[in-house]
């Protein structure tokens, strides 16, 4: 049981790491979500705050850079 818990927790940490290096994609995604009344505004504000913090900490859009590089290799 311990190992699968470690596996699950690592997935969450990896997800956070992916968020840190993926630019403003989470905010785009949250904007694209269906409206859930007030919760929507709260969520967008939270993600926007986190995105600003990310920028201040110096995290760039490495996902975008990787995408550009891979697409140039693939020729698409």
């Amino acid at each position: 049981m311990g190992e699968i818990r470690a596996f699950s927790i690592t997935l969450w940490v990896a997800l956070l790491a992916c968020y840190l290096i993926s630019g403003g994609r989470l905010l785009d995604w949250v904007f694209g979500m269906p409206d859930i009344a007030q919760f929507d505004d709260w969520l967008i504000a939270a993600v926007d705050w986190a995105d600003q913090l990310k920028i201040r900490l110096g995290f760039g859009d490495w996902f975008g850079a990787l995408r550009q590089w891979l697409h140039s290799i693939l020729g698409v």
């Binding site: 470690a6 596996f7 690592t10 990896a14 997800l15 996902f63």
Partner: peptide, 15 residues
């Protein structure tokens, strides 16, 4: 180890 398996999966998904 389990943590490394999860990291490999995450890296592949990311790519």
């Amino acid at each position: 180890p389990a943590t490394l398996q999860a990291i490999v999966l995450s890296l592949i998904c990311f790519a």
